[in-house]
């Protein structure tokens, strides 16, 4: 691994100043499970690594706030997997977090890091998208909130401005009953990078939200408000046609070694149908909320 400078600021202002001051030469470090791999393979060569784990304003808390559940910048996948509130209200996120790497990786990898890397295959993105997540970013000119759907640009690129750090991710509290689920495709059952990753949420008003990743440069959120997908009695063939429209934007990479575009697209539909069915079941059998 190439040498770099290392700083561990204790105040958010100092962290932002470092990130802002060094611009593209700086990389923030939280869990490090992606960053350190890329430092070693040389695909990232920062002059300075800013470890944000000492910043007083950043924490690993999952906090209930007014109208939403907030995940601190240092919240790890393990924290999410074991959190009862996440399991109860955002099961697709809990399921997705459990898919991220091994125990050792989940103990280190952060939810915020998973978003900031903006990998199209990130497992937690689809769940966060269907739950309407917002990014809380703080930079030299203050704090702003960005809907997650407006955060992703393409693989590795977000709308974060120079000097901005993500402080938290907020999920709106569910306003009623909801059935949701996360599904994915991998090459083996043990931890693996997803060749398709997908989340689905169905609400009693007949709206179905689907988000999918690993089939294009960024994860995509789509919505069916016709009531068709959420209707347990609708013919499967109609649902397939509806999904075809919703998935029209999927454009899997033709050069990936993990799966062919044709397989990914076919699996997107398989997972879509299965997820809709599971979400409907969960909605039907779920306790009121």
């Amino acid at each position: 691994m190439r040498a770099f400078a290392y700083e561990r600021p204790t105040r958010l202002d100092d962290a932002i100043a470092l990130i802002d001051g060094h611009g593209p030469d700086a990389r923030p470090l939280a869990g490090g499970t992606d960053l350190i791999i890329r430092l070693r393979d040389g695909s990232l060569r920062p002059r300075i690594v800013v470890d944000v784990k000492g910043v007083a304003e950043l924490d690993a808390e999952i906090r209930e706030e007014d109208g939403f559940l907030a995940f601190g910048a240092l919240t790890t996948m393990t924290d999410i997997v074991v959190d009862g509130r996440v399991g109860r209200d955002y099961p697709a996120l809990a399921e997705a977090a459990l898919f991220v790497g091994s125990v050792q990786i989940r103990n280190r990898a952060t939810l915020v890091g998973n978003m900031c890397n903006a990998s199209p295959a990130a497992d937690t993105s689809p769940a966060l998208l269907v739950y309407g997540a917002r990014i809380v970013a703080t930079g030299p000119s203050g704090t702003r909130r960005v809907p997650l759907d407006e955060f992703f640009v393409r693989s590795g690129v977000t709308t974060l401005a120079r000097g901005e750090l993500v402080q938290a991710i907020e999920l709106p509290r569910p306003t009623g009953r909801r059935g949701s689920v996360h599904l994915r495709r991998t090459r083996r059952r043990g931890h693996d990078l997803a060749s398709v990753t997908l989340a689905c949420a169905v609400t009693p008003d007949g709206v179905t939200r689907l988000a999918y990743g690993s089939v294009g440069p960024r994860p995509v959120l789509v919505l069916d408000d016709t009531g068709l997908l959420a209707d347990p009695t609708a013919p499967a063939a109609d649902k397939v046609r509806r999904l075809e429209m919703l998935f029209a934007g999927a454009s899997p990479s033709p050069t990936s070694m993990r799966a062919s575009p044709q397989y990914r697209l076919a699996m997107l539909h398989v997972l879509g149908l299965r997820a809709v069915a599971t979400a409907i079941e969960r909605l039907a059998s779920g306790a009121s909320q």
Partner: peptide, 11 residues
Amino acid sequence: AIDYRIPTTMD
């Protein structure tokens, strides 16, 4: 080890 897969305990 990322893209050459061998069986794990889950497989």
